[in-house]
Every structure is written in structure tokens, then in C-alpha cells.
């Protein structure tokens, strides 16, 4: 679809959000509480934090929650009755005010959960999701979207992208049919405009490397000692994977109470030792360095090979969340110049 350009002012935006919530849609946006900004359900525009560069966690939980029922079961004396999840009943969700990198993160996630066998639960959530992103005016030391084919005004993954042009007005890019549906239902709130050069309204972020270079470098350095060096201070927690908008690895767990139980899918991380541990005690990725290497290879070598896309959107959340300053951009830069 060709991008449709519009303008919207802040009061119209407030009305738009009101209309969403009144029509039963669930609106999730960055909300600041106790000093940290996270995606949360909002009712009005006042609840929303427009300033935060990046929420601590990504918006992925809107389509891939940290724990999600994939089926339930009931045991009887000699039988088990399995109940499917009714994913037709998922609510319509609006992701609002997320950054372009968050929106871009839905693409590699979708690539994981689609594939030959489609994960209908994920698919249903994604179909019910409309993404209204806001371009970045600011970036911090951890941002590197421009190095991974993204950018502060990138439209990938967004249904609508807003760019603040004046104190009261946003330049609107309607990117998809879903976005257009919103426009069509609320034409009174939008004003016409010609295409605008967004550059002056966007954060400046220097490109440090390209994904393609990383991808190419990775071909020859699997056995390099750089992995040991880089992973030396990694503590082996899963924070990086859990805050990552593109990490989709999961675990499946049963929980039973009496006769009834639920099978859950919950976030997991390739950084954990038991992720790949065999029952025999053998572990294909025994060392933390191997697990760090897996993380980089998965995003920059395997995913490009399997799904023709990269598994990193440059949001920098992993680096921000890391307790021991494992900065992925720094490490990638190191790899790029090998």
C-alpha cells in the first residue's frame, strides 16, 4: 500500500484514543510509574509518557506475553479432555506511542511464529493488533537502529507512524490497510498534507556498522576467541532476551491443580545454561561464550538465512538492561572491524 500522509493535532489525538477505548479496544502505551516507563493499559492521553526514549521492556508482550496459556486439560479417571485456547476471542489491541524499533520488532517475531507451521495464537494476537508508533526525537548512547536498517522515523512494522513536527501537531504516515481503517473511521480528526521531510524532526543517530557486514563477518569467526572475550563478564541472566523485542524463544510448562491443568508457553532465553541441557547432563552449549555466540549468530546469521531478515532492531534495550554492561552495539562494532 502506498503511504498516505496526514496531519493530526494533539487534541485530535486525545479524541482518537478516547474513541479507541470507548469502542472496546485496549490501548497500550508507555506509562511512567516509579521512575520507569513500561507499556501499560491507558484510558486517556494523559496517562501516556511521550518522553521516554525506550520503555524498559519492549512491546512484544502485546503479541507474545511473558506467560500464555496454549491449552488446558482436565484429567478424568481414564481419559484426558484437552481444551484449545479460543484465540478468536482475543481483544482488539492498539499499541500506541511505541518507537519505530518496537514496531520493527514485530516483523522478526512474526517470522518465527509463522513459518511452515503457523502459531495461531500468536497470529491471532498480531492480527488484532494495530501499531501506532511515534518517531524518535531523541536517542541515547544505547540506540543503534540506524546500524540495523532501522531509523528514528522508520515505518517498518507500524500501521501508522506519527512524527512530532510542532508542539501541537504530528505528521501522520498511514502505512497499512489497518492504519487506513483507522483513518477511514476517524477522518474528521485528520488533516490533509503533502509529504513532509521528517529529517529535521528526528533524532540524529550515526550508523556504526551495517547488518550485512556483520552477517558476512560471522561466516568465518565461529571458532574465534572473540566470543570468550566478549562473554567474559556476561553473568548468564536472561534479561537481554526478555527485554528484546525480537527474541521469541520460549519454554513450555504444565501446571496442574487437582484434575485441571494448563499448558503454558513462557519466555525463555538462550543465555540460560539449562536452555539446551540434555537430560543426560550433556550440554551442546555448555559455556556462556557459546551461548553469547548463539545469540549473535541467531540474530545476524541464522535468521537472515532462514527467514531472510535480521533479528535485531537496534533498540538497545539489552544493553540498557544488562547488569554488567554487555553492550551489543559495541560488540557488533568489534565484529564488524575484525
Amino acid at each position: 500500500m502506498e503511504i498516505i500522509n496526514k496531519l493530526i493535532d494533539k487534541s485530535a489525538l486525545a479524541t482518537l484514543i478516547e474513541r479507541f477505548t470507548k469502542s472496546g479496544k485496549e490501548v497500550f502505551a508507555p506509562v511512567k510509574s516509579k521512575g520507569i516507563s513500561e507499556f501499560a493499559r491507558v484510558e486517556t492521553i494523559q496517562d501516556i509518557d511521550f518522553e521516554t526514549i525506550a520503555t524498559k521492556q519492549s512491546a512484544k508482550s502485546l503479541v507474545f506475553p511473558k506467560v500464555e496459556k496454549i491449552l488446558s486439560y482436565e484429567k478424568t479417571f481414564d481419559d484426558v479432555i484437552v481444551n484449545n485456547v479460543d484465540y478468536t476471542q482475543f481483544p482488539e489491541v492498539i499499541a500506541f506511542g511505541n518507537r519505530p524499533c518496537d514496531a520493527a520488532g514485530f516483523i522478526p517475531l512474526d517470522a518465527i511464529f509463522a513459518g511452515e507451521l503457523v502459531d495461531e495464537i500468536f497470529k491471532a494476537r498480531l492480527e488484532k493488533l494495530t501499531v501506532i508508533s511515534i518517531s524518535c526525537k531523541k536517542a541515547d548512547d544505547y540506540c543503534f537502529c540506524t546500524s540495523v536498517n532501522g531509523g528514528p522515523g522508520n515505518t517498518t512494522g507500524s500501521d501508522i507512524l506519527l512524527t512530532e513536527t510542532t508542539a501541537d501537531e504530528y505528521f501522520v504516515e498511514i502505512v497499512t490497510e489497518k492504519g487506513k481503517a483507522i483513518l477511514d473511521a476517524n477522518t474528521d480528526l485528520f488533516k490533509d498534507t503533502a509529504a513532509i521531510d521528517k529529517t529535521p524532526f528526528l533524532a540524529k543517530l550515526e550508523q556504526q556498522f551495517t547488518q550485512e557486514v556483520i552477517n558476512e563477518k560471522l561466516n568465518g569467526i565461529f571458532e574465534s576467541d572473540i566470543w570468550d572475550k566478549q562473554a567474559m563478564r556476561c553473568v548468564g541472566c536472561g534479561a537481554c532476551a526478555f527485554v528484546c523485542p525480537a527474541c521469541g524463544c520460549f519454554d513450555i510448562q504444565d501446571e496442574t491443580k487437582g484434575k485441571n491443568g494448563v499448558r503454558h508457553r513462557c519466555w525463555d532465553s538462550c543465555g540460560f545454561k539449562i536452555f539446551t541441557l540434555h537430560t543426560s547432563g550433556h550440554n551442546p552449549r555448555e559455556k556462556q561464550a557459546q551461548r553469547w555466540r548463539q545469540r549473535i549468530y541467531h540474530k545476524f546469521s541464522y535468521q537472515p538465512e532462514q527467514q531472510k531478515l535480521f533479528g535485531c532492531v537496534g533498540c538497545g534495550r539489552c544493553s540498557r538492561a544488562c547488569p554488567s554492561d554487555m553492550n551489543i552495539a559495541e560488540h557488533l562494532k568489534e565484529i564488524a572491524v575484525l
Binding site: 501446571e255 503454558h264 513462557c266
Partner: peptide, 30 residues
């Protein structure tokens, strides 16, 4: 459950954490 608390704690040195012990499953993983 990213277990950063456990991973960054010098006193959490168990090779197999209680939450990873699944027979029986003492602590729900989810």
C-alpha cells in the same frame, strides 16, 4: 523470570537452581 537477580548474586552459586529442579517441580517456572 529473567533470573538476573540469581545470575548477579554471588551467593546464588548452585549449579542446579531449585527452580530448575523439576522432579518434583517445586517452583512453577511460568
Amino acid at each position: 523470570k529473567c533470573y538476573a537477580c540469581r545470575a548477579s548474586c554471588p551467593m546464588c552459586y548452585c549449579g542446579k537452581c531449585n527452580v530448575e529442579s523439576n522432579n518434583p517441580q517445586w517452583i512453577p517456572v511460568a
